[in-house]
Simulated scan of single mutants.
Amino acid sequence: MSGFTLGVALLGGLVLASLVGYNAWISRRNSPRQPAGVGTASLEPVQPREPVFDAEPTLPPVERKPPLDALIDAIAPIAIEGVVTGDAAIAALPPTRRAGSKPFAVEGLNEGTQQWEPPRAGQRYTAFQAGVQLANRTGHLNEIEFSEFVIKAQQFADAINGSPDFPDMLNEVGRGRELDQFAGDHDAQLSITLRAKNAAWSPGYVQQGAARLGFVPGVIPGRLVMPASMAGQPPVLVINFDTQAALAEDPTQSALREFTLSLDVPQVHRSEQPFVRMRDAAIALAASMEGIIADDKGDVIRAEALDLIGSHLEKLYDILEARDLAAGSAQARRLFS
Rank of each mutant, 00 (worst) to 15 (best):
L316R: 14
I309Y: 05
S101Q: 12
I72N: 10
F156C: 03
G37Q: 11
F215Q: 08
A210D: 09
T243H: 12
A24P: 00
P167C: 05
G112R: 15
F53Y: 04
A135F: 07
K197Q: 13
P67S: 15
D318A: 15
R212S: 10
A88L: 01
R49S: 11
A245C: 00
G139R: 05
A9K: 02
P61Y: 12
L11W: 05
S262A: 14
I72G: 08
P60C: 09
Y125K: 04
A24G: 06
A330K: 08
R302K: 10
E81T: 11
A127Y: 04
F104R: 02
P61Q: 09
A9W: 09
A322M: 07
D168V: 15
L256W: 02
E290W: 01
S147H: 09
I80D: 12
L247A: 12
L335G: 06
K297L: 10
R97T: 09
H269F: 14
A159W: 01
L10Q: 02
P48M: 02
P60Y: 09
L285E: 07
D324A: 14
S254I: 02
L16Q: 06
V206S: 05
V15A: 13
L237S: 06
A9F: 12
R302S: 06
D73F: 03
K315S: 12
A200F: 03
L11D: 00
D187A: 10
E107T: 04
I292D: 07
A326G: 14
E321P: 09
A153D: 07
T40R: 14
P35E: 06
V173T: 14
A130E: 01
V268N: 07
L325W: 11
F146N: 06
A294T: 14
P203Q: 07
G3S: 13
A55D: 10
P35N: 03
F146K: 08
S262D: 05
S288L: 03
G328K: 06
A327E: 07
D296W: 01
V46M: 15
L256T: 00
M230E: 15
G139L: 09
L256K: 01
K297G: 02
G204H: 06
E111K: 12
N240D: 14
G112N: 13
Q155W: 02
T85R: 04
A200I: 00
Q208W: 05
F275R: 06
N110F: 00
P217A: 02
R270M: 04
E304H: 07
I144S: 13
V150K: 12
E272W: 08
L308H: 11
K65D: 15
D165P: 02
L335T: 11
H269A: 15
A183E: 13
N23T: 06
Q181M: 11
V15I: 14
R29L: 11
E56C: 00
D250R: 13
A231R: 11
T126F: 01
N161R: 11
Q253H: 05
V225W: 04
